[in-house]
Amino acid sequence: MTTPPVPLSPEQQQQLVNRIGHGLASLAPPGTWRQVRAEYRAAGRHIEADVVVTGQDGVPRAIQPPPELLQLLGTLRAGMYRPGAGTWLGAVLTVDPVRGVGADFELDREPQWRRTPPPIGFQDELRAFPRDGRNVPEWLRRRAAGPAEEEGVRTPRIHDGLDAGGRPLVRRPPVAPAEAEQLLAYLDAAPVILASRSNGPDAFAPERTDAVPLNFRTDGVWAWPGAVAYYLREHGVPPDPELVAHIRARRYTAPGEVTEAATDLALAAITAQTTT
């Protein structure tokens, strides 16, 4: 990642785009397709790619992108780097039999990651493709910085207190079923930092004495127990509204890993919560 990128002229860039387009077209059987679309997202060493072939029946079908296609896209990304300005992190290339090859590149807008890269991925990005300060978008600066140590890692409220009979209260906005699925996907995808082989009792269904997972996950900013996802899934209890807002801001995409420093902060937050 420390080798200086080799710049490509506009003509070379177009030639490479056309070459990639021809490669995409070759992935579909002749005469059976309307469009081939490739989405490529990268930050440092983190790479994601999706290729979809839409047939004559109008049905899109995902296919595995070949390694040589990923290599060409990586070459194009490096070749489009401009000193101080950086290069694109997301691209969409489309091919159809009538219009030929089209390409759109996102230089400053954050891609919609399948799994958000950890901070080191964005740090690698800025080392490999340096940008002047004014050309670093706020989201990229924030992603590269990771959680601020002085702020610590936050933990959510599981419910909103107890009633006179000792039953948990829920006084928070509901979430729609479709969003609940997105929230659950996020809550279940973040890295586990603490786990137990046993389960705990269900506060909303006391007869379930061995039901709630005793694990903790973190995305580097929040750390939450397995109870958050469990109560949403089993009883429709929305997570802490501030955690929900945080997940929405991240487009429901959890990081695949977090830094060691973030893990330590999360464990410290959990320990503080369980001892107070």
Rank of each mutant, 00 (worst) to 15 (best):
E138H: 10
W139V: 04
W139L: 14
L140I: 12
R143W: 12
A145E: 12
A145Q: 12
P147F: 08
P147Y: 05
P147L: 06
A148K: 10
E149P: 11
E150S: 14
R154V: 06
P156D: 04
P156R: 00
P156G: 12
H159W: 15
D163N: 09
A164W: 14
L169E: 10
V170S: 03
R171W: 02
R172S: 03
P173D: 03
P173I: 05
P173R: 03
A176R: 04
A176V: 14
P177Y: 12
A178I: 03
A180N: 10
L184G: 09
L184I: 12
L184A: 05
Y186N: 10
A189Y: 03
A190R: 06
I193F: 05
S196Y: 00
S196A: 11
S196H: 01
N199H: 01
G200L: 04
G200T: 09
D202R: 04
D202Y: 04
A203K: 07
T209R: 14
D210K: 09
N215C: 04
R217Q: 12
T218F: 08
T218G: 08
G220F: 04
V221I: 05
W222F: 10
A223T: 07
A223H: 07
W224Q: 07
W224E: 00
W224D: 00
G226E: 04
G226L: 04
Y231P: 09
R233A: 14
H235R: 06
G236E: 07
V237K: 07
V237L: 03
D240F: 01
D240E: 05
P241D: 03
R248V: 01
A249D: 15
A249M: 11
A249V: 11
